[in-house]
């Protein structure tokens, strides 16, 4: 049994203009110790998916349906009290902007210790010792002095290290990282990615990595799921996805990014464009969600929504046009 199994997840928001179907029937699973990347552009539902996993969407704003099974327990059916004992303990989360996710008026030592006192019942002194240990683990120098610092006294990269320290303090089995390096400079991003890879080896937590950056996906993930307009359109092991993308949207994304070193090969190609824009999620979409921007779309695509089909072992795509892998002759 997988560590996390999500089936037919639907997260809808009520808005004055109608229901926004931010996530519409997404299923996936995460194995113990595995890194799954969820990739897509703004508004594709990747962040809403992660918030739904943690049940961070207030019932007054939106409705989560489907099933989310973590270690065999259905998270959507749990009372709030039990959910709280899971958040930050079994499943923890790192957000994009460390400055807004840390409390500005509390020391970072207190904030790391808070999770430990709450979930593991450590005393203040024990929590302090563990906080120092965690800061050392995430590569912050002079940890004994730093625990007395406030977030504003640290650089962006250090704050993200603190966020990681908080997230890993209770040895979670699943870490959800929502654009963890997007707000950082590239040299700092490289440090944080190295750190996450290294810690994953040591701690053994599974990671759900949410990102828009295909470079980060290629470097970090084992399996990738591509989302578009609230749906999962493709899923594959990372090497396979980059080598033989099956969904036209994935192919479009890969063609739209410039590669470093392209000027040296002498083949300066024009970037591939995906014409048009993401459809509004407030209207019901008939047919394939990508049909309006797809060069291969035909009558079937515009009338019947494609289901996810196995195109090769472990490789799924929701496209009428994508070919199946030819059977070895």
């Amino acid at each position: 049994m997988a560590l996390l199994e999500v089936e037919n997840l639907q997260t809808h928001f009520r808005t004055p203009e109608g229901v926004n179907r931010a996530v519409e029937g997404v299923s996936f699973h995460v194995e113990e110790g595995e890194t799954l990347a969820i990739v897509g552009e703004s508004g594709c539902g990747k962040s809403v998916t992660s918030m739904s996993l943690m049940r961070l969407i207030p019932p007054s704003a939106g409705r989560i349906a489907g099933s989310i099974r973590f270690d065999g327990r259905d998270l959507l059916g749990l009372p709030e009290r039990e959910m709280r004992s899971i958040r930050g303990n079994d499943i923890s989360m790192i957000f994009q902007e460390p400055l807004t996710s840390l409390n500005p008026v509390l020391t970072i030592g207190y904030q790391i210790g808070e999770t430990l006192r709450l979930h593991q019942g450590l005393s203040a002194a024990e929590a302090r010792a563990k906080a120092i240990e965690m800061l050392t683990l995430v590569g912050i120098s002079e940890p004994a002095r730093r625990i007395a610092c406030y977030p504003h006294e640290l650089s962006g990269g250090m704050r993200q290290r603190v966020m990681i320290a908080i997230a890993l303090a209770c040895n979670p089995r699943l870490l959800i990282a929502d654009e963890p390096t997007t707000a950082l400079d590239v040299t700092i991003q490289a440090q944080i990615l190295d750190l996450m890879r290294d810690l994953k080896q040591r701690v053994g937590a599974a990671i759900v990595l949410i990102t828009h950056d295909l470079g980060v996906v290629a470097e970090m993930a084992e399996r990738v799921m591509v989302m578009y307009a609230g749906r999962k359109v493709e899923e594959a092991p990372v090497a396979q996805l980059f080598k033989t993308p099956r969904h036209p949207y994935t192919r479009g994304l890969l063609g739209a990014i410039p590669r470093l070193g392209s000027s040296l090969t002498g083949r300066q190609e024009r970037l591939a464009e995906i014409p048009g824009q993401v459809p509004s999620l407030k209207n019901r979409i008939t047919g394939c969600v990508f049909a309006g921007r797809c060069s291969q779309a035909d009558e079937i695509c515009r009338t019947i929504a494609p289901g996810l089909e196995t195109k090769a072992p472990g490789h799924f795509a929701a496209c009428h046009q994508a070919l199946r892998e030819e059977a070895p002759s």
Binding site: A190, A221, F242, R259
Partner: peptide, 8 residues
């Protein structure tokens, strides 16, 4: 430092 979009 730039992540390359090529897992291989």
């Amino acid at each position: 430092a730039l992540p390359t979009p090529d897992p291989e």
